[in-house]
Amino acid sequence: MTPADLFALPFMQRALIAAVFVGIAAPAIGTYLVQRRLALMGDGIGHVAVTGVAIGLVTSTSPTWTAVVVAVLGATLIELIRERGHTNGDVALALFFYGGLAGGVLITGLGGENASTLQSFLFGSILTITIPDVLVTMVLATVVAVLCLGLAPQLFAVSHDQEFARVAGLNVRAYNLLVAVLAALSVTVAMRTVGLLLVSALLVVPVATAQQVTRSFRTTLVAAMGLGVLASLGGLVIAALASFRANVAPGATIVLLSLAVFVLTWPLGVWLRRRQRARVPFDDEVPADHAHAHDEDDHAHGEDCGHPAVPHGDHLDYVHDGHRHAPHGGHYDEH
């Protein structure tokens, strides 16, 4: 069998379709989670969804739908607990992590289910995805992506500055709950692709990669969605091609590929941030005494003189060997 034959197989085509939709939806909602510093929320919801899957398996109903219901309930509860402020957000998440996972394992065992069935949800089984599953994936992923893009101004405002959003008359609680529910939906959508234990990677890693090089929210959101598709499609293709020689799990290759892209982008981000920090204006006041800078062989600071020019009040300081030289008359002052 050639690679071309492999991609012609129906199960492979279903997997490719699912991968594209998951790659679009997960980073879209992930951007808002990262913005409000809830990067691990997807993980918490994923663990809660394990219980949902187990309930589905034991009661012989569709694990996808029971996972959706339980994940949405769990996400809503996490959000409400966080909003109350009685427990820190991360502690509330931790409680759900362990409760959800333990509940899922317990229920599966009680129902006499084979642990390997549960495992296909924990680590993904995109190649066994059925046509109804593909349809559910497409519908839910479209809902998530459309709401994330359509309500972007509102969701951005609420995630950026909650108090300002409240005074602007937005229903902050409703939008917070919406983000939680959308996160739950994208977790269950991604469950068949990368598995519940790896799902947060698809929500968060493309966003982390995108923001290494972006300056605005909109480009981060769009770039993260592009990187998400790249990772999920690329990971699937790598796993499929590698399957001629070895048993490669697509969930793992998808996550590792997106991490690899992050690792490649990270040094660029470090360099860009360094450069940006060097240009932040100096905020302190101009010293009243004029300390003359050391004479520097009649070097004249100016555009492209090789020394970073940083705004300082009404003038520019030139950063020179750790000193700040400010032009003053025919010489330079130390600022």
């Binding site: 913005q35 101004p153 951005f156 950026h160 602007a168 972006t214 605005s216």
Partner: peptide, 25 residues
């Protein structure tokens, strides 16, 4: 409403224009 400036930025970069545009909501 102009709240007190909080030290910590948000987790995702935002441009000046985007922040100002959110005031238009």
């Amino acid at each position: 409403y102009v709240p007190q400036r909080t030290g910590a930025g948000s987790g995702v970069p935002a441009s000046v224009w985007e922040v100002v545009a959110s005031g238009r909501l």
